[in-house]
């Protein structure tokens, strides 16, 4: 067959367009699938019981585990430890802070002096009310993240276990 440039060009364009179309037809639903679990997964903000008021010593922080049903991707497990919370009782009131450092997400400990919160990863100090300790090193842009907390009529302490964006000056709830 004689060379026919216009026919060759037409076929090239057709092949290119066809391949692009076919690729898009596969890639678009695939991309949605990959993005799917990344965006979903929020299940409200349930109150979780974490302690009894009488267990909490006055003015001394206590670390408790948040135990609740865990919906993790394709599995669900009953009553799993989801994370840790620091509780500080002041009379009938309770303060609750997530034990996740607002800087980069390490676990907040009690400082050796027992009078501060402390993150070992970047030696950040926080007062017991969650504020950054003045005069001590701190790499975080904000104080500890307080959690919504309530004491029920039965004197149990309940929190909403929220996660926060790290590294920002303002606390920003994730999920």
């Amino acid at each position: 067959m004689a060379k026919d440039p216009s026919r060759r060009r037409a076929l090239t364009v057709l092949a290119g367009a066809g391949a692009t179309g076919a690729l898009a037809a596969v890639a678009l639903p695939s991309a949605r699938l990959v993005a799917g679990p990344a965006s979903g997964g929020s299940s409200g903000r349930p109150w979780v019981q974490v302690a009894r008021l009488t267990e909490l010593p006055e003015g001394q922080p206590a670390r408790v585990r948040v135990i609740a049903d865990q919906h993790d991707g394709y599995t669900t497990a009953k009553q799993q430890p989801l994370g840790q919370v620091w509780l500080l009782r002041k009379g009938a009131e309770v303060l609750a802070f997530t034990a996740t450092c607002p800087h980069l997400g390490c676990t907040i400990d009690l400082a050796p002096d027992g009078k501060h919160f402390f993150c070992p990863c970047h030696t950040s100090w926080f007062d017991l009310d969650g504020k950054k300790t003045e005069g001590k090193p701190n790499k975080s842009l904000r104080g500890l993240d307080a959690l919504p907390v309530r004491v029920t009529a039965e004197k149990t302490v309940e929190v909403q276990f929220l996660r926060f964006q790290t590294g920002t000056a303002k606390a920003e709830v994730l999920g």
Binding site: G41, G73, G175
Partner: peptide, 8 residues
């Protein structure tokens, strides 16, 4: 696949 490491 989420904001924290998980099953995905």
């Amino acid at each position: 696949g989420g904001v924290l490491p998980n099953n995905w």
